[in-house]
């Protein structure tokens, strides 16, 4: 039996559920390509954030060769969808989601921030912007 896959760390899940092709003429929708969350994350790290594979692998908590395999699978699925005109759905994969903790200096509360790309962060309780990122929290 094959060894179970390690869970991959996802810090930025996609904002949308997937893509649909725009056609020249109406046609029946073909079966979608299922792009796993880890494959989406590998595309984002490599081609959007332009990280090298070593850093990207550390960010996802897998080895460099494993990252390369995930990334290759992602590219092939995207290419297949483009050429065959099938929709893409983001779903599944051996993943877990995580986010960073922050501390508000005004009201003393801790909170996590889910969407990294939104960099303007205010405290969800008192709306203060006097906050700092923290790694050590009651875990």
């Amino acid at each position: 039996m094959a060894r179970p896959k390690k869970l991959r760390k996802i810090t930025n899940p996609p904002k949308i559920k997937g893509f649909k092709p725009i056609r020249h003429y109406p046609a029946a929708e073909s079966a979608p390509v299922l792009l796993d969350y880890d494959e989406y994350e590998s595309l984002r790290l490599s081609d959007y954030e332009l990280k090298n594979q070593t850093d990207a692998a550390v960010e996802m908590g897998v080895s460099r060769p494993t990252f390369a395999r995930i990334y290759e699978s992602a590219r092939r699925k995207v290419a297949r969808s483009f050429v065959e005109g099938t929709p893409i759905l983001f779903q599944g994969g051996p993943v877990y989601f995580t986010s960073d903790w922050y501390f508000c200096k005004d009201c003393g509360c801790w909170f996590n921030h889910l969407n990294k790309e939104d960099s303007v962060i205010i405290c969800p309780l008192c709306s203060s912007s006097c906050i700092e990122q923290s790694n050590a929290v009651n875990e």
């Binding site: 877990y96 989601f97 995580t98 986010s99 509360c109 909170f111 996590n112 889910l114 309780l125 009651n138």
Partner: peptide
């Protein structure tokens, strides 16, 4: 995190 619900402690 997977449900995109924010936690406040």
């Amino acid at each position: 995190d997977s449900l995109k619900i924010q936690l406040v402690i």
